[in-house]
């Protein structure tokens, strides 16, 4: 555990909590892509199957359980509890265009051809692109609530911090995992455009709206 890992995890946790609280407090999931949230629920489920096979630490187990639990709670709020506020018309990204290639890639490029390994690899690849339905929705409506941009910022920051964590681990532990690093780079790059808008608009007190 290093400082980048820890702040990365906390940033990830903050993102998840911000989104849950936003939906809960406003009693609405307007502007939130339910599809992205389903993808994240799939990501956590396929990655944390190792909860059943290996114990690392209390921190590790509890964070995994919190992430999985919150992911399903978010999906429940969007598709069941506040379904009436869900903006399905604007959430029109075709997720099969992500899941099918990512599934194929996980079968082709993995560390070992074992069910748990393939599912882990699948979750890493899928996470890197899971935010696309959300970004697509924002580009379609041309705007995002400020609280939604805070959520996206924390979520993007988390993977960027993990990149620093991997540099650290490479230097001090001689460890690197090419699959995680490449996918993490892709994931971080997808947020760059958003980071720019966040810094130039949201942090200056303006609402995030895209030019028509």
């Amino acid at each position: 555990m290093n400082v980048f890992r820890l702040t990365g995890d906390l940033s990830h946790l903050a993102a998840i909590i911000i989104l849950l609280l936003k939906i809960w407090k406003s009693r609405s999931c307007a502007g939130i892509s339910g599809k992205s949230q389903i993808l994240f629920a799939i990501v956590f489920t396929t990655r944390y199957l190792d909860l059943l096979t290996s114990f690392i630490s209390l921190y590790n187990t509890s964070m995994k359980l919190i992430y999985v639990g919150c992911a399903y709670a978010t999906v429940y709020l969007i598709y069941v509890k506040f379904r009436a506020t869900y903006d399905g018309n604007h959430d029109s990204f075709r997720v099969e265009f992500l899941i099918v290639p990512v599934g194929g890639l996980a079968v082709l490029i993995n560390h070992s051809f074992a069910p748990l390994e393939i599912l882990w690899t699948f979750s890493i690849y899928l996470e890197s692109v899971a935010i696309l339905p959300q970004l697509f929705m924002i580009s379609k409506t041309g705007e995002a609530e400020t609280i939604t941009t805070h959520y996206l910022f924390c979520l993007g920051l988390y993977r960027a911090l993990y990149l620093f964590n991997w540099v650290w681990r490479f230097y001090f532990e001689g460890f690197f995992d090419m699959i995680a690093i490449v996918a993490g780079l892709v994931q971080t790059v997808l947020y760059c455009d958003f980071f720019y808008l966040y810094v130039t608009k949201v942090l200056k007190g303006k609402k995030l709206s895209l030019p028509a």
Binding site: K64, H111, Y162, D177, A180
Partner: peptide
């Protein structure tokens, strides 16, 4: 150590 790290990171 690949396998271990697999489970260690979130």
């Amino acid at each position: 150590a690949i396998g271990q790290t697999r489970h260690d990171e979130l």
